[in-house]
Computed example of a mutant assay.
Amino acid sequence: MEFTDLLKQIEFIKEVDKLKYILRKTKLINSDRNENDAEHSWHLCLMAFVLAGHANFPVDLLRVIKMLLIHDIVEIDAGDTFIYDTQKSHTNTEEERTAANRIFGLLPDEQAGELIAIWEEFEAGETHEAKFARAMDRLEPLLQNTSNQGGTWSEFGVTYEKVFAKKQVIRQGSETIWQYAEQLINDSVEKGILKK
């Protein structure tokens, strides 16, 4: 690689440091401090590494980890959209596409193309790796909210039906983890921290 490629890579590395400043609605487990996107991404990677044996199909763990490391980088420009937001869609938006092109475009062309393709794969959620990565992305906030007496569910009046519908994505990546998640959701209703 040329020295100019190194300079582009360093610019990208400096730019993605901004992910540490993007606050999510969810709070850390057993805490009242909001999680930031960088913490979220790190935690998902560790979860994927530990829980990969529960995936519905064998997965390329390195590809899953790449997805989890970069899936929220677009939020540097587009901001974090709360999964239960009733005003703005949580699905891939033109705003996120523009962000992906700008931020990944800081890299040398070949690397930029690779990361955009990995980001698109995660967003599409069709490969085994994407399904498992998305399962991790939906599991972590469930663990956080159940540890925080309902957390964002209580704060924003999120109902059982909405939680159940959004968390179904877990099933596509892991039936075993879905069984655990479904039990957590049902237990949350019984405890009164999630309203039906």
Rank of each mutant, 00 (worst) to 15 (best):
M1L: 11
M1T: 10
M1I: 07
M1K: 11
E2F: 05
T4A: 12
D5E: 15
D5W: 15
K14E: 15
K20F: 04
Y21R: 11
L23M: 15
R24K: 11
T26H: 13
T26M: 11
K27T: 15
D32E: 05
E35K: 04
D37E: 13
A38H: 00
A38I: 01
W42E: 10
H43I: 05
H43Q: 08
L46Y: 08
L46C: 04
A48E: 01
F49T: 04
G53R: 03
H54K: 10
N56C: 05
N56W: 03
V59M: 01
L62T: 01
R63C: 02
I65P: 03
M67T: 07
H71T: 14
H71F: 13
T81Q: 07
T81P: 09
D85M: 14
N92Q: 04
T93L: 07
T93D: 01
E95M: 09
T98R: 01
A100C: 08
R102K: 14
F104T: 12
L106G: 01
L107D: 04
Q111L: 14
E114V: 04
I116H: 03
I116D: 01
I118V: 14
E120Q: 14
A124G: 01
H128F: 05
K131W: 03
R134D: 02
M136C: 15
L143V: 07
S147I: 08
Q149E: 13
G151N: 00
G151K: 00
T152K: 08
W153I: 04
W153C: 04
T159V: 08
F164S: 06
Q168G: 05
I170D: 05
W178S: 00
W178D: 05
Q179F: 15
E182A: 13
L184C: 13
I185Y: 06
S188C: 06
S188I: 10
V189W: 02
E190H: 09
K191F: 02
G192L: 06
